[in-house]
Each structure stands twice: as structure tokens, then as C-alpha cells.
Simulated scan of single mutants.
Amino acid sequence: MPQSLSLVAIVVRDYDEAIAFYTETLGFELIEDTYQAEQDKRWVVVRPKGDGPTALLLARAKNEHEAGFVGDQAGGRVFMFLETDDFWRDYELFKSRGVTFVRPPLEADYGTVAVFEDLYGTLWDLVQYSNKSPLKR
């Protein structure tokens, strides 16, 4: 039976500022933004443009405990890996839109990669896999 990841939840401080960052800065598509009255929350889903199946569920922190994870989704490690078909195009585009890169581009056997922060400080890899990488699609 084939399986795939459909959604990954990422805890955010505010829906609208997160939507703006992911859609305007990173160029993701807003797939859904539906208010759920019974839980007094929004179901907000964004996805990178392309044919990948995985999307992000932007989950607003609802208490102090959850708020403590905003910007630290993975304890200071890289949390997400954004694959691109043109590293340098997207690297320059993101820089022009104010994205902060905390590690410069690196050419490695598996591909080209640089680490950036999202609007809250969570770390992401921008990566273009080489033909040598088992992750190359």
C-alpha cells in the first residue's frame, strides 16, 4: 500500500503573519484557510508550488506551552527541507525578499544547500539534490 506524508504541522504565533511569510516571501500556495468555530481556530494549509504532496498546517499556538515551540520546532536543528529544482534562483529570490540565511551555500556530493530561518527562527534547508543523491526525484 503506497503511503506519503500529506501534512506537517508547524506551530506559529499568528495565522496572518505566517500566511504572509509562506506565500509572499517563500512563494507557497495557500491551499485552505477555514475557520473552525467549534474549536475557535483556523485550518490553514500552505504548500510549496510544484507537484510535491506534502503541505504545512499552520497551527497557531493556543497556550504558553505551545508558544514556547514557536521558532524552535526541532530544538535548534534544521526542521524542514525545501527542495528546489534551481538552488541559485531560489537562493537569490529569497535573499531579495529578506530571508535570513544563517549558513552560506555549500556544494556537497548530495547537492547544494544553505540554511535559512523562517519568520520565527525555525531552521530550514534550501536544497537542490544532485543526481548522486538517493533523494533526487
Rank of each mutant, 00 (worst) to 15 (best):
L5C: 08
S6K: 15
L7T: 02
L7P: 00
A9R: 12
Y15P: 00
A18H: 07
Y22M: 02
T25V: 15
L26I: 08
L26G: 05
E29G: 10
I31C: 09
Q36N: 04
Q39G: 11
W43T: 04
V45K: 10
T54Y: 12
T54D: 05
L57S: 10
L58W: 14
A59M: 03
K62V: 03
N63S: 15
N63Y: 12
E64T: 11
E66K: 13
A67P: 00
Q73A: 15
Q73K: 12
A74Q: 05
G75I: 13
G76M: 10
F79Q: 02
M80E: 04
T84S: 11
F87A: 01
W88T: 02
R89N: 02
K95Q: 07
S96R: 09
R97V: 02
G98R: 11
G98Y: 07
T100W: 01
T100Y: 06
F101T: 09
R103N: 11
R103F: 11
P104V: 09
P104Y: 07
P105D: 06
Y110V: 06
T112E: 07
T112S: 06
V113R: 13
V113Y: 10
A114T: 03
F116D: 04
D118H: 10
Y120P: 00
Y120A: 15
L123Y: 11
W124I: 06
W124V: 01
W124A: 04
L126A: 06
Y129I: 03
S133Y: 12
S133Q: 10
